[in-house]
């Protein structure tokens, strides 16, 4: 089992009302799975993914990754866990405005020991596979929503992570690009054995995954 989370709770309090973003959710994911998470808006999909990525705090719950406990509320150790294991595509892309496409994608590599040449060839190869080669020098504000999304995807993949978390990675793409992206995910999953978790509203995408779960009000329903 690659991922094993148990009894996750995450409540938001606004005065008297409580939003139960996660309400005792448990989930296991095997190595090599390609999992789709579906559910209505506000059901807690992003919250779950953020916790799996180690970027959100939980109220309660346990998280084992590869049978090792993930220190859920220790930022210092979480940051190392993230760096070593996870490629994360957040819902709103989170690109750095003052970096162009190339530098945004190259960012994770700059935290490792790569030569300029290595960085250059890796980034350009990946940009080619997401059809962004000619946008390498453009800044985020010069790109369309779909292009930004593909930059975010490329950046999540550049480090060759074993777990890829994607929060609606094809939300603003046309069908053709969406298919291209899904082909990449499928390739990563089937050929390279990467574990992939995708949050999506799109049944076509869900169909391409090995398993689909549904979340409702912070719990898995099916």
């Amino acid at each position: 089992m690659l991922i094993n989370v148990m009894d996750l709770y995450k409540y938001y309090h606004h005065g008297d009302s409580i939003t139960k973003a996660l309400d005792g959710l448990s989930l296991q994911v095997k190595k090599g799975e390609m999992l789709a998470i579906m559910g209505r808006s506000g059901s807690g999909k992003s919250t779950l993914l953020n916790i799996l990525a180690g970027i959100d705090y939980v109220d309660k719950g346990k998280y084992y990754y590869d049978n090792k406990k993930v220190p859920l509320n220790n930022q210092k150790e979480l940051s190392i866990f993230r760096r070593d294991k996870i490629g994360f595509i957040v819902q709103n892309f989170a690109l750095i405005g003052y970096k162009n496409t190339f530098d945004n994608v190259a960012l994770p590599l700059k935290y490792q020991k790569y030569t300029k040449k290595e960085i250059n060839s890796k980034v350009m190869a990946l940009l080619k596979s997401v059809s962004l080669k000619d946008k390498a020098n453009k800044y985020p504000h010069e790109l369309s929503g779909g292009e930004c999304q593909r930059v975010a995807i490329a950046r999540a993949l550049i480090n060759d992570p074993e777990l890829i978390l994607a929060d609606e990675p094809t939300g603003s793409l046309d069908i053709k690009t969406e298919e291209e992206i899904m082909d990449i995910f499928a390739y990563l999953n089937q050929e390279l054995g990467k574990t992939i978790i995708i949050v999506t509203h799109n049944f076509d995408i869900a169909k391409k995954c090995t398993r689909v779960i549904h979340i409702h009000e912070g719990k898995i329903t099916a």
């Binding site: 970027i55 930022q75 760096r83 950046r155």
Partner: peptide, 15 residues
């Protein structure tokens, strides 16, 4: 915010 982006892209708290 910028640090947060770095943190999901291979940066660590120490950096």
């Amino acid at each position: 915010k910028n640090y947060a982006i770095h943190l999901i892209n291979g940066s660590t708290i120490i950096y």
